[in-house]
């Protein structure tokens, strides 16, 4: 392995790139899934109250909503609070000066216990007389879910294709190593070396190629993370989100090492069993 430093380095880098691509995609999908998980738990039903309802009736409505089954919490947003919030966050605050009265309705935020129950809940709330409109923005969530599903499949496909690539790269490197050590193999066999004894150093080489490739891939991913982090944080702060990019983690790193080592070993094994046969004596 150390006899050809440049060849070794190239092989390790090729393996690293092949491992980095699907892993980076996997991490992206996982991050988006986490993000969507946060959104899902905050999926709320917004209940708009009819204009002109008396404060006592609104209070009663709040109690009524809280008693519905499958509701965890109900919070009241008065028209005034909504206006202030809009003023502070939308950037159109100055436009409100030209309005004579507050156009926003009184509203309740209803937190459903289970996301699956929310459709039923919405129908139920709609029946209440004082309710003007009910909103549940869920459709984009299921779209995101479908996208994530596709992403996961893409990770698998890309991982499989590049895994085969790594097997071929390692296999080719091992083939060259076998050819350059042909004399040695012949002599070892003639003095009574078993096939396993001859094979072992090549298998170790394949395993090490995979390990080193995985380690370099991990470094690449860390670098990628550092590079992306400011942009992600900017984006998150624009959405008032506490979201932080999460990396591979220790267990992910160990899995990456195991996959790299396994694929390297597989490449070496295939190459050794193919090319050892060509060397006489058998």
């Amino acid at each position: 392995m150390l006899r050809e430093p440049l060849q070794t380095l190239l092989t390790v880098v090729v393996i690293a790139i092949a491992l980095t691509l699907p892993t980076a995609l996997y991490i992206s999908v996982e991050n988006i899934r986490q993000l969507s998980g946060g959104v899902e738990s905050s999926a709320q039903i917004t209940v708009f109250v009819k204009k002109g309802a008396r404060p006592a009736a609104i209070e009663k409505l709040g109690e009524q909503l809280g008693k519905l089954s499958g509701v965890t919490s109900v919070s009241y947003i008065s028209a005034q609070t909504a206006l202030e919030e809009f003023n502070a966050l939308s950037g159109f605050g100055s436009a409100l000066q030209y309005l004579d009265e507050n156009p926003l309705p009184e509203a309740f935020l209803v937190q459903p216990l289970l996301l699956n129950d929310s459709a039923k809940l919405v129908a139920e709330i709609r029946q209440i007389t004082l309710v003007d409109d009910v909103q549940l923005d869920m459709e984009w969530l299921s779209r995101l879910d479908a996208l994530l599903d596709m992403g996961r499949k893409l990770v698998l496909a890309l991982g499989a294709a590049l895994g085969i690539g790594v097997i071929l790269v390692v296999g080719n490197t091992i083939r060259l190593a076998i050819q350059s050590r042909r004399d040695e193999i012949i002599i070892v066999k003639l003095v009574g070396g078993t096939d396993a004894y001859v094979r072992r150093p090549f298998l170790y080489t394949g395993l090490l190629f995979g390990f080193f490739g995985a380690m370099v891939a991990a470094l690449m991913l860390i670098g990628l993370g550092f590079w992306l982090e400011p942009s992600v944080n900017d984006l998150a702060s624009l959405y008032q989100s506490q979201f932080r990019l999460s990396g591979l983690g220790v267990s992910g790193f160990i899995a990456l090492l195991a996959i790299g080592g396994g694929v390297g070993l597989a490449g070496a094994w295939i190459s050794v069993s193919q090319h050892m046969r060509d060397i006489k004596p058998r």
């Binding site: 040695e184 012949i186 002599i187 066999k189 003639l190 003095v191 009574g192 078993t194 096939d195 004894y197």
Partner: peptide, 22 residues
């Protein structure tokens, strides 16, 4: 058997014409 060949060869000492040193 083929798998026993290495163990048989360990009973032999062989001096080659072109000495076959590494």
């Amino acid at each position: 058997a083929k798998s026993r060949i290495p163990f048989y060869r360990r009973q032999l000492g062989v001096v080659f014409q072109n000495h076959q040193l590494l």
